[in-house]
């Protein structure tokens, strides 16, 4: 680690703001996970951490390391990209599993969408 580089104040302010913003969004997501009443409502708040929370933290990391090493260090950007590919897969599967389990236990959820029905127009 190079001790000679002193980070400019604006950069510290920016990195701090991004970190706090990201963690606050993650906290709101967790609050939603605990507070909301219905399972399908609870599927929405975790997206806060995996989108804007991850973006803020990754941006902070990129800014900090790029100035520290005096060259662009972009690899933290892989985390949001990876998340945006993997999170939909698990969320989708979980939503289908929840629909399936609720239907078999007779709870009030929409019928299975079949072709020709529910077409609307």
């Amino acid at each position: 680690m190079n001790e000679a580089i002193v980070l400019p104040f604006w950069l510290e302010l920016l990195v701090s703001t991004l970190l706090l913003l990201g963690s606050l969004f993650a906290l709101i997501g967790a609050i939603g996970l605990v507070r909301l009443k219905d399972f399908f409502q609870r599927m929405h708040p975790p997206a806060l951490a995996s989108t804007i929370g991850a973006w803020c933290v990754a941006a902070a990391s990129i800014l900090y390391f790029s100035v520290l090493k005096q060259s662009p260090v972009l690899h933290a950007w892989l985390i949001p990209i990876l998340l945006s590919i993997t999170v939909p897969v698990t969320t989708l599967l979980l939503a289908r599993a929840a629909l399936f389990r609720k239907r078999t236990s007779g709870e009030h959820v929409p019928e299975e969408v079949s072709s020709g029905r529910d077409r609307g127009n």
Partner: peptide
């Protein structure tokens, strides 16, 4: 921010 993340994990 580490502290806030820890609270979120607790929730």
């Amino acid at each position: 921010s580490l502290f806030i993340f820890a609270i979120a994990m607790g929730l």
